[in-house]
Design a protein around this nucleic acid. Structure first.
Lengths: 225, 225
DNA sequence: TTGCGATAGAAAATCGATTATATTGTCTTC
DNA sequence: GAAGACAATATAATCGATTTTCTATCGCAA
């Protein structure tokens, strides 16, 4: 068995990239805001070079907008773009889910059950929102993981990050939240039954409802920072 | 080789990004090769900072692999990955084409005809391969442009770049090339007739044949640099 | 031999300072 | 007053040098 590589191989660049990505997805920057590089330098206590490298990566990834000679901006929240992101999520995650159901093996079933269980426990422990986010992302990743297409997974990941920018700013919607949480379990059930059609339909509905929650980012949500 | 200065707001970073992207897509670097930063510095006659920023962007875009503390590598050419890329192209470009046909207006029809005509002329003038590549890319972009989804277009663009890494290394296939060239015209005809089904089917076939050409990158093509 | 540790050299990552560009504010002119 | 020119300031981009980390090689012991 191969020895697991040292996790410690991290550069300042990569660390700050991860941190900034999280902070951008979680709405810790005002949408549309100009990102003053020197203020980030102070805020995260890093040098210019690794910081700029991280910003360049984030711009290529789509979480920042880069304008030559004018630095970086946080993308605006835009209703049409949210529609686009949600629509693409439906298409791509539906596709990925069907394939995953066709290809996933017994090990996948186990991991899926585990991921769903962890998420369910987090649903009921409302104290740690960040932990819930982590497990939620992980559940959705696990669901589509064996779809067989690395590029499809990559795109889905990217869309999730974009989508979450909106969702995390939206006001809480406890009733919808309860439905969404329940759907996670139903998705697992349909996946285990290998009901691709049913699962895809449910995923579609799941994303649609999430989208409706995320739409809230345009009303009250924007102001509650 | 010096980086040509372009008009407009351009940074060294952006210039070298464009150049490197082209060079990577066109197979001017050996697949799997480790990219020695200092050799690039000499090759393109730029400083370390803008070069590293460009490399970071390219890694986030998927044309390079970044390994912490070990710099950058050109991704290997991998048969399974080519399958993946071609498959995703079929899915996404098919989807985009259907939507474009449903939404494209008269102006789109004009631009499409123009793009197809320019490409056709380039087909018959085999001297300038780079120009043909430019017009070919432009034609395919025009075809799907009014699909209505910026993210879909973004993903398609990215997949094209990935696909072309393989295609440009593959040996010439004049007979298939002739078929592919003819299909461009047929695609325009079907688009103008608003035959979404037919156009999608043809696009599927078009990508499939291109894929078969690109497969050649695994035999002789690899050596013809 | 084979494996281990030390080490010199190479390469990547980062820093501190400089240069180039954009932005802001002020003054002038019409 | 509004528009434009200019200077002052702020910020982005880049450079040259330094620090850190990897990698190849060697000597030595089992």
């Amino acid at each position: 068995m191969a020895i697991p590589k040292r996790k410690g191989r991290m550069t300042t660049s990569s660390r700050i990239y991860d941190t900034l990505r999280q902070d951008l997805v979680n709405g810790r920057f005002e949408a549309g805001e100009k990102v003053a590089i020197s203020s980030l330098k102070a805020r995260y206590d890093v040098g210019l070079s690794p910081l700029r490298e991280a910003l360049n990566r984030l711009a290529a990834y789509g979480l920042l907008i880069q304008e030559n000679q004018r630095g970086f901006r946080v993308p605006r929240l835009d209703r049409d773009e949210l529609d686009d992101i949600a629509g693409m999520r439906r298409e791509l995650e539906g596709m990925a889910l069907e394939r995953a159901i066709a290809r996933g093996d017994a090990e996948w079933e186990s991991e899926l059950l585990a991921a769903a269980h962890r998420l369910k426990r987090a649903d009921q422990a409302p104290e740690s929102g960040d932990e819930w986010e982590r497990l939620h992302g992980r559940f959705h990743r696990t669901l589509v993981a064996p779809c067989g297409s690395a590029w499809l997974l990559r795109f889905i990941e990217q869309l999730h990050d974009q989508f979450d920018r909106y969702r995390r700013l939206a006001p809480e919607a406890p009733e919808v939240r309860r439905v969404l949480d329940a759907q996670h379990g139903e998705l697992v059930a349909l996946a285990l039954e290998r009901d691709a059609q049913g699962a895809r339909a449910l995923m579609d509905d799941h994303i649609q409802r999430s989208y409706e929650v995320a739409l809230g980012s345009f009303s009250r949500g924007r102001l509650t920072r």
